[in-house]
Each structure stands twice: as C-alpha cells, then as structure tokens.
Write a protein that binds this DNA or RNA. Structure first.
Lengths: 245, 245
DNA sequence: AATATTTGTCTATACAAATAGACGATTCGA
DNA sequence: TCGAATCGTCTATTTGTATAGACAAATATT
C-alpha cells in the first residue's frame, strides 16, 4: 500500500512533490521500464489535486526523459537508453543480455536485390551481383529499439533467409554457412529524421531522430560478408565508443 | 568561499531554498550558536532576491526556533537550549562544561539583608539574622542564560562576597569557609513572566517567560547553607529532571 | 461503427510567491 | 544627540502555482 502524501504551503510546489513521488516509484520498480504509470486522472484523485497539476509533474519527467506520453494510450516509463558499445566484435544479443535485458528480434522482410555501385564497393563484389536484403527488427524487453537492413551475397549464403528466420541470429546463420567468426571493420555514424516505415515499426512519431550506423562485417581474413544499415531509436539506445578492451 | 545558488521556476520557492541554505550554514558551523547571521539586506544581495523573500526564509527558521531576530540589532542563531539536570549535586559549571559549552559568571550585586520569616524558615535561622544577598549572572558561550539570587548567613561566611567576587564560584567560596561539600535538598520549579531588571540582564524582551527555581543547598549533615532563587531564560535552558545516577 | 478512455490544448479564475518602494521602530556608535 | 544600520510593517504590482471546465485528438474496446 502507498502512503505518500503531499503538503500544501511548504514552499515546494505540488507538481514537484508529485513528480518526485513518481520518480521514486519508478526508481523503486513499482512501475517497470516501458510499463504504464497510472493515468493523469488516477494520480489527480490519488493526491486530491487538479489534473493540470499532475500534467505539470508529468511534463517535468518527460522533459527529463523519464516518462513518455502517448495520446489516447497512456503515460509510460521511458526505458533508460541501452548502451550500445561499438567494438570490433559487436553482437546485439550479447550487448543487451549483459545489461540485464532480454533481446528478441525477428526478420520483417526479405528480398533479392542486385548490388548497386555503392554496395558492390562495400562488399567488394561486382555491380549487379545478387544479394539478399534482409530487414530486421530488434526488441529489448518488449520495446522495439532498432531496425536494420543487411545485404549479404546470395550465392555465398543461398539459404540464409531460412536459417535466419528460424534462429533470428546472423551469427548462427553465418556459422551454418562456414563463417565461424566475423568482426566489424568500419562503422559510420550519422543522425537522421526517422523514415515513415521505420517509425511505424519502432512506434516512434514522425520527426524523431534516429542514429544511423553503416557498418561492414568481415571474416578474419578481411573479406566482407555483410553490409548493414542500422536505425536506432535515439531515445532508447545510445552509442558508446570505447577503446578495444 | 560560498558557492551556493538558488534557482527560479523549479517548483521550490526561493524563500525555502534560502531557508535551507541558512539552516545548512548554521549546521556546518559557519554561524555559531548565539552569533549573528548576515543582515537581511546582505542575504538579499547575496542571492539577488528581494529583502521580503529573505524575511520569509528567516521567519520560517524563527518559527522553527533556529533563529531569533532583534529589531535594530540583527538576526541571531538561537542557541539550542542547554539541558540543566536537577540532581542532588548540581554545579552550573560542570553541567555546562559537560555540554561542550564554556560557562562564565559574575557577581552583579551584593548586599546585606535581614532574614524575613520565609528565608529564616528555609535556612533554619532566626528571623532578623543578617544574610548576604548575592546577585549572580551566568553566561554560556557569551549568551546570558540565567540570573540567580542567593542568601547565605553572614556571620558564618563573613568574607564570602570577596571570595566569590574573585573566583565566581560558590563551590570554592564555601570551601574556603570549611564547607567541603554541599548538595541540593529541595527544588521548587515554577514559571513566571520576567521582571524588568532580569530582562535587561538576560537581554530578553518584556513578557518573556522564565523558569524560576527555588532551591536550598545543605551540608552533608543536613544543615542549610544557601537559599537560591534562579531565573532561567526558558528559550536558552531547559530543565531535565532525572533519577539519581 | 460506435463508445469509452486517455492525453493534449485552450480559457478563465483564485491564490501564493516574489518584487518594489516607503516608512516606522529599535539599537548602536560617532 | 544625531545619524546610520537593522529589523518590522504596510501597500501595490507582477509572476508562478493550482483549480475549474470544456473540448479536441488519438487510442482501445465493444
């Protein structure tokens, strides 16, 4: 049971007392990351204040990135952004698991595509080479955090979409084709406004920024195997550039 | 150097931020007990706020008994009341020293007086016996805390005023006359409004309450040696009635 | 498709907080 | 004794806080 109280005339505004109560409840785990907090009306009734006063408290927490409000749905705890360290060996599932979160992922699309000049250069293939283009959605604790598009040579990994569709793991899918290890060669990072399709998948609003990572994975002998373009919800993940451990 | 800051529009009233700053400064010892804190104008300039805002902060601390304002003089840290335990052996200097404070005292008056019926009964002497009446002011850490009037048989302690005037100690003065030990027999406690003369000596305003202690000190064989009427500033000392240790 | 729920925005009102200025009351030192 | 310093009180104005009500916009439910 919840016995918190707010006091009037103390020189501390009601909205601030409510904001601090909510912040404490979230920190204590009463409302889990990504979960819903009580509605404005409920909180207002709970403390016997006007809804506008609650709204101001919530606005302060939204400004701090602690809450996120969705019109018509409710107000949610904005999960702390997941750290995404960029190293030579970067495996999404390992990164996420090491932060006590549960990663899931699924293939949202798959198509054949001919390499254009850019992709051909990146993958060191001839222009027009047939590639798999695989669309992926990565989810952490039920919250979608990034979408990625990967291009992989079709002739070298003919049944990759099937294996990836089963395992949801590039590491496993490439291993089945004889690539036991791979590492990140280069990563370029930029920021863009989210595209419509990505926004739908990530549950973001138009106009939100995304981090865009363009990376090339190579086998230990330096041969490119995969070109990936990743779009990360900037409010849910943050990049960490670290020296090699 | 002092780097504290106050922020506007945070939902915490300026007066409260200032009050908490002052409270912290006092707790940290920046302004010592009984000492002066900066003037309203200085604090207002320090934080770039209006003097009225500072006044509200100070009013809150006065209500909490932490500060005390004297018109025309300044605002002072209200010393925490000194505990004054009542036991059989009560020595002002020992009590005060044990509370990490520095006691001083001085005789403020001395006169001869004949015992009236009341004093004669208390001291077990005949009515009309010549007594010394000695007025004493006790000060702790520079702050006057009590005034006392003591009556002692003159023929038994003929040069007591001289000795007390030198030593400011009844214990020593009585010892010189052969009374090695004495203890408190009875103490009556009451509360009155302060008298004009006492108010001047204690630096209190008219209308302030004082604790009045009427006590009789006796030698180990039970013979009365001293009758004392003590007036204590109620906001600077508090009585503690304890069982004998 | 209709309805209920929930957040977003707007207007209006009342009260608290903070500012501004003036002047009185008390104390202290020159 | 005078004036400066300091706290006490008063009026007036502006800004921040909180309430009240209405309706729009998006979502979820039936």
């Amino acid at each position: 049971m919840d016995q918190a109280r707010i006091d009037r005339g103390t020189g501390i505004a009601l909205w601030r007392q409510i904001a601090e109560w909510l912040r404490a409840e979230i920190a204590a785990g009463t409302y889990e990351a990504g979960g819903r907090v009580p509605t404005e009306a409920e909180i207002a009734a709970r403390f016997e204040v006007n809804r506008h006063t609650v709204r101001r408290a919530i606005a302060a927490l939204i400004a701090d990135g602690i809450l996120r409000a969705d019109q018509g749905r409710g107000t949610f705890v904005a999960s702390a952004p997941i750290s995404y360290p960029i190293r030579r060996r970067t495996r999404f599932s390992e990164i996420v698991s090491s932060q006590d979160k549960t990663p899931t992922g699924r293939m949202t699309g798959c198509a054949e595509e001919e390499a254009d000049a850019f992709l051909a250069a990146q993958l060191e293939l001839a222009v027009g080479t047939l590639l798999w283009r695989i669309e992926t959605l990565r989810v952490v604790d039920g919250l979608p955090v990034l979408v990625a598009t990967s291009w992989i040579e079709k002739s070298r990994f003919p049944d990759l979409p099937d294996i990836y569709g089963e395992t949801n793991s590039f590491t496993l899918a490439l291993a089945r084709a004889g690539v036991d290890d791979y590492s990140r060669r280069s990563t370029r990072v930029s920021a863009e406004l989210i595209e419509r399709g990505d926004a739908l998948q990530l549950g973001l609003e138009d106009g939100q920024p995304v981090l865009v990572l363009d990376s090339v994975n190579v086998t230990p002998d330096g041969r490119p195997v995969q070109y990936t373009r990743t779009r990360m919800a900037a409010d849910r993940m943050q990049l960490v550039i670290e020296p090699e451990a």
